[in-house]
């Protein structure tokens, strides 16, 4: 169970989830230079949206048939919230001082979390989430749950699709242009507002996928799951180089694997016996963020970010 391949696999699954959420941070940041603090909450509402669909489906329906519907439901909720936030909360502040949209994002995050807490039926504690049947599968010395496989598959498909979209579609290219220089892009006839909406929508969709996958993986979702996940995903985005979509995925994987390994092996380091285990996982992820900011603030694949003229 505690073999190195097993830890690597655990890290890979965890990292895929971080990566999926990190895409939303990084795309929005790349285009409007805004850290959308509410993104973790968008992930959470995606999971709750999917669950809401599931609970309203006839119980005779198999989970495999319900899955696409849950995905659509979750994605709908996440995308509507993400786009609505952009349209109603962030856009009016686009020329305001930097602090204003950041504070708005914090407010939005609080409001979304509390809205679910107060008004989603019985969401005050964890909600059970359906699980995929089958598994665990034994691949070599590694145990894999079917939820993990779904997560990994979804991450790979989403990344490939996003890569193709950004590289080859007209909108994708317009997106790259807007990220480079919004004013010039506008002069060249790019509808930057539309591009920004699309960035928020894609981020929301990926967050919903991650939300659904995390529900399937852990069998439980919580109103406050977005806070930790959002923090981790942001760390992943910074780790990979914020603004770079491949960086976000890479950062997610590195963070996931680092976290899994730290949890399992740090206790073996002499003098660190008491700092292993799941209780310290968050702490090591945070330490990693600080170290990255100290050593390579531009991230693994990013460009220089220091504030210069």
């Amino acid at each position: 169970m505690h073999t190195l391949p097993q830890q690597l696999a655990n890290g890979l699954f965890l990292g895929s989830m971080y990566g999926l959420i990190a895409i939303g941070y990084t795309m929005v940041y790349g285009i409007v230079q805004l850290i959308n603090f509410a993104h973790g909450e968008i992930y959470m509402t995606g999971a709750f949206g999917a669950l809401a669909i599931y609970t309203n489906l006839p119980s005779s329906l198999s989970i495999w048939a319900a899955l696409p519907l849950m995905l659509i439901g979750g994605a709908l909720v996440s995308v509507v919230i993400a786009v609505g936030a952009e349209r109603l909360a962030y856009r009016p502040l686009r020329n305001a001082p930097r602090l204003a949209p950041l504070i708005t994002a914090i407010g939005l995050s609080l409001a979304l979390q509390q809205a679910v807490f107060n008004w989603y039926p019985d969401a005050k504690s964890g909600k059970r989430f359906p699980q995929l049947p089958g598994g665990p599968f034994h691949i070599g010395s590694v145990d894999v749950q079917s939820g993990d496989l779904f997560l990994l598959g979804a991450a790979v498909i989403c990344m490939l699709a996003l890569g193709i979209f950004v590289r080859s579609s007209r909108t994708g290219r317009a997106m790259q242009a807007t990220a480079q220089d919004p004013d010039t892009a506008k002069l060249m006839g790019v509808d930057t507002n539309r591009i920004i909406i699309i960035a928020f929508a894609i981020g929301g969709f990926f967050a919903a996928v991650a939300g659904l996958a995390s529900g399937l993986k852990y069998g439980q979702i919580q109103y406050n799951m977005g806070f930790q996940a959002g923090l981790k995903a942001f760390t992943a985005a910074v780790l990979g180089g914020i603004g770079n979509i491949y960086g976000a995925m890479l950062g997610g994987l590195v963070l996931g694997i680092a976290e899994a390994c730290a949890t399992a092996y740090i206790a073996n380091v002499p003098g660190m016996e008491q700092f292993g285990g799941g209780a310290w996982a968050q702490v090591w992820a945070f330490v990693l963020l600080i170290v990255v900011l100290l050593v390579r603030p531009q991230g693994l694949l990013g460009e220089r970010v220091a504030d210069r003229a």
Binding site: Q33, L34, I35, F37, R98, L99, L102, L231, F234, V238, L289, I290, L293, P297, V305, A306, D307
Partner: peptide
Amino acid sequence: LRGDYLAIV
């Protein structure tokens, strides 16, 4: 770094 990093850290 940029101010946003401070916020998240």
